[in-house]
Computed example of a mutant assay.
Amino acid sequence: MLRPILSPEQVNLYHHQGYLIVKNFCSQEEVAKLYSTALQDNAMQQNALDLNDQTGKKTRLSLWFTPGNDVFGYLTRSEKMVGAVQQLLGNTSAVCHFHSKLMQKEPKVGGAWEWHQDYGYWYKNQFMFPDELMSVMIALTPANKENGCLQVIEGSHKMGRVNHGFAGEQVGADMVMVNNALKTMPLIYVALQPGDALFFHSNILHRSEANLSDAPRWSVISCYSLQSNLAYNETSTSWHTPVQVVPDEAILHWEAASLSEADFLKKENDPALKETGWEG
């Protein structure tokens, strides 16, 4: 049994809101190591995919499935990450890692993301239980209104799955239901500082604006499921493999492998790309 990471109040807030912000979840030293690795490791950049919004602006992402012995794998497998996810998803089954992605929204050119639910994509993978799916975003650079931070509709996870269709190269939610949600529930701009974490439910509606600022917005997002949450149309294997937890100190102090060993999603794997839940 992993040690509790979150307070009962935080767990209750997540279930009420559909999201939870934890300030300083990662130390500045951890963020510096993650960010420098993302900038310097050729494998991360060589496996980056460009995705267009409806205006032609681009956001880059690199996506991989099995968390390895690199620094991002250590973050994904860390006791604090898996322990917090276990508390939020429940202790009924082992935590598994679906996939992780590095989001790179560059100054002036970083594109917008349409309103969507992650389960709007993952439903096509035939995951059975959306309440047993969630994502964790760690900010590597500041995220604010100016550079296109995430927006969420608080409480919208309680609506259940909304129909989704294509919007440019993205998959977006039915805007009639989105507009109804915006009239009913609060719109929240999720401003984060480097090291802050956002935990969010697979059914919460979220989007982001284009980055029109002079500053980048980079983040890493790890998506998790419980082993009991069967996916009948998913070809990767990490989603049903319990995470091999490592101590938090691994992020800074363990020898890290190259990201070249990671099983990155390739552009030629599209349409699988359309079903992974690109954004956060």
Rank of each mutant, 00 (worst) to 15 (best):
Y74T: 04
H157G: 04
A84I: 03
W254L: 12
A38V: 03
M137C: 13
P194T: 03
S100K: 12
H240R: 15
A32S: 14
P242H: 13
Q244I: 07
N147C: 10
N163E: 14
Y224N: 07
T59D: 01
H15Q: 00
V190P: 05
P142Y: 11
K101M: 04
A94N: 04
A181F: 09
F98I: 15
A210C: 04
N144S: 11
V82Y: 03
N144G: 03
K108Q: 12
C96L: 02
K158M: 11
V11E: 06
E9P: 09
M103L: 14
W113F: 15
H206Y: 05
L133S: 10
E146Q: 04
D214E: 15
L265C: 02
G120S: 07
H157L: 00
F200T: 04
G160T: 02
D50R: 15
K274F: 09
D70V: 05
T237L: 14
F200H: 12
L187G: 06
P186W: 08
V11Q: 03
T241C: 02
E249K: 13
M175V: 00
W254F: 15
M134R: 09
D131R: 05
P67F: 04
N47C: 09
S62L: 03
A181T: 11
G56E: 00
L182Q: 13
L49F: 08
T66A: 05
A94E: 11
L252W: 03
G83N: 10
S27W: 01
L51D: 06
I5T: 14
D70G: 01
E255V: 14
V136T: 09
P194W: 07
T237Y: 12
D196R: 11
G73K: 10
R3T: 14
C149M: 04
Q104G: 01
V245F: 06
S219L: 09
G165S: 14
D50S: 15
A84F: 02
S100G: 12
S260R: 11
G111T: 07
E106K: 00
N180H: 13
S228V: 11
M137K: 10
V245T: 08
A112W: 04
V243Y: 07
C223S: 15
S238Y: 02
V243W: 06
L252R: 00
N144M: 02
E79L: 09
H99W: 09
V162Y: 01
H116M: 02
W278K: 06
V246H: 08
S93R: 01
L102Q: 12
A256M: 07
M1D: 10
I221G: 07
H15S: 06
R217W: 10
V246A: 11
G68H: 11
L140G: 05
L252G: 00
L20D: 10
K183P: 01
G195V: 07
D248C: 11
W218D: 02
W254R: 13
M137S: 14
Q46M: 10
K274C: 10
R60F: 10
I188F: 03
D118A: 00
N125V: 00
L34T: 02
P4H: 10
K23V: 03
S258P: 14
L259T: 11
K124P: 01
D248W: 10
L89R: 00
S213C: 03
L212I: 11
N47I: 07
R77T: 03
W254M: 14
L140H: 01
L75A: 06
P130C: 05
V95P: 05
